[in-house]
Amino acid sequence: MSKDEHSAYNYLRHTKKFPNVWCSGCGIGIVMSALIRAIDRIGLAKDDVAVISGIGCTGRMPVYLDFNTMHTTHGRALAFATGLKFARPELKVIVIMGDGDALAIGGNHFIHAARRNIGLTAIVVNNSIYGMTGGQHSPTTPLGSRAATAPYGNIEPPFPVCELAAAAGAAYVARSTVYHAVELDRYIEQAIRKNGFSLVEAVSYCHTTFGRMNKLGPAVEMMRRLKENSVTKAAAEKLAPSERPDVIVRGVFRDEDRPEYTALYDEVVRRAQGAAGASVRSAGGAG
């Protein structure tokens, strides 16, 4: 493949890392190409973007991307990203996490990043399971579904990812699916442009673990289900409440402007320096 042939080529570590490690047909690669299209449309220079991940199949994504990248530890991607944003607030920092990474081990970082409204873009690839480690149930596994750690069916209700982020204080919150890849890249673009904590939930699938344990078929079947089982926010409002839990609702659920955390922090630094300067001056005057 050459630069003239594929518009994503320029953003990939194409000579070293391909083909990628993901199972044939896995939706994570679709999220990666949506992210590339969003960055390309905004026209960001590669050096002005940092992509941070934790551990998991989703966490492999920065390995393939030719930006500033950090592949950190399981659950701590947002913590590393927070540090980076403080040190280099001019960077567009994008954090890519699986549902386990973001909401199980990393759940605390997730709610506090949203509460502070720090200027990061979080993308949660929600495949309802721990893919990399063999299909243990995650905080987004649907009730009743089977997992390696729930062989008789999951008894824990799942987190609604977008609602959780919005309740915690995120400035921008949207959900789409890997079937709706064009809508997904539009939401990712809006999220990156937002000055504040922005979250995009990219609903995907893991046919290798979740699909096999729940007899949902290969990637093409799981993809078809995303098409058939999802509705826009407007269409969802017309559904009876009893029908709603069974569908994936796509749309932008929050888009607000609130003061961004690192900007507020800079303000505190200036105030403290002003106060320190004044006390030095008054100390000097008294002497």
Binding site: M1, N20, A181
Partner: peptide, 12 residues
């Protein structure tokens, strides 16, 4: 080419 998980197909 917007859905290929492996960026292995392109439409010119």
């Amino acid at each position: 080419d917007t859905h290929c998980p492996d960026l292995a197909i392109v439409v010119q």
